[in-house]
Design a protein around this nucleic acid. Structure first.
Lengths: 153, 153
DNA sequence: TGTGTTAAGTCAATAACATTGACATAAAGC
DNA sequence: GCTTTATGTCAATGTTATTGACTTAACACA
């Protein structure tokens, strides 16, 4: 790798860092008003996006320990944002779904990101979004948890 | 925004999340071997990328408090990874630079990311990298700290 | 039916980390 | 000299993550 390429890649590393910060900024601000943290948004997002997710699947997706998930998940259930119902086929596992207010909160949080990204993709040229998705999908494929996303979606 | 577009943007939110995890994965593993955390990598990366950065500039860039930066930065200085020398023009401010071993550690950490991203961009088609950079630059422009990057670079 | 396994929930101890407020020192600006 | 700025530090507090252990309920299956 020559110096010119390395310099370009360094620029890319900086961009990735700052872009992700922007990405998480607005939801973080909204969460703060509700006295919640980013982990709550992640839970709401994945439960909203993959309704009927089990606790174990959520753990695998977030790549956190059961103990680390326990508190924020319990809070969301107690606050009435998430339903936790036993699965019919295997009553040991619990299916997670959003309540109506959970849906509303998730929408409030993720809409900020969706609108923001939509605007940036619209302002960029044709094909830019596809290219961006291609790169990010390649990076995401390295995640073990991504394997079973297709089973749920 | 119609349902189809919303669904596509949801997919994009998932990709962003998982892609960023992949991005931070390898350095995190290397850091763990050195008993360091992600914040140490950020410090090393920005000091390496913008040598002569002052403490205040680093604070603005990382968007953390002075107290939060204090401990990890002090550790890096004590471990001999970072030099901290008074600026000539204003001897109150301290210029941060990497030592030789600091350079080596930064290289070890960031090389993992550079090689990884280089590979993915190479495998993608022509113009894909440019498109990706365009989007991430648009997102990064929203950061207040990015404004003075040009002054340093 | 009994045994082992799995999913989930919880508790407790400890360590790590962030946050806030306060204060000190040295240098600069004027 | 007085004020401001840049940095460094401490302490108290609160929060979060980590590890290990344990319990309950449900399932699988010989």
């Amino acid at each position: 790798m020559d110096d010119r390429r390395k310099s370009q890649l360094n620029k890319i590393l900086v961009l990735f860092y700052f872009a992700y910060r922007t990405f998480t900024d607005k939801p973080d601000q909204i969460l703060a008003k509700h006295h919640l943290q980013r982990v709550h948004h992640r839970i709401l997002f994945f439960v909203g996006h993959f309704p009927g997710l089990t606790v174990n699947q959520l753990l695998a997706m977030l790549e956190v320990s059961k103990q680390a998930l326990h508190k924020p998940l319990k809070q969301l259930v107690e606050l009435g944002f998430i339903h936790n119902t036993p699965a019919e086929r295997d009553r040991r596992s619990r299916l997670l779904t959003l309540t109506d207010t959970g849906e509303a909160l998730e929408k409030e949080l993720s809409d900020a990101q969706r609108v923001f990204l939509d605007q940036i993709f619209t302002e960029a040229g044709i094909g830019t979004e596809e290219a961006w998705v291609q790169i990010m999908a390649a990076l995401s494929q390295k995640r073990p948890a991504v394997g079973f996303l297709k089973d749920l979606q």
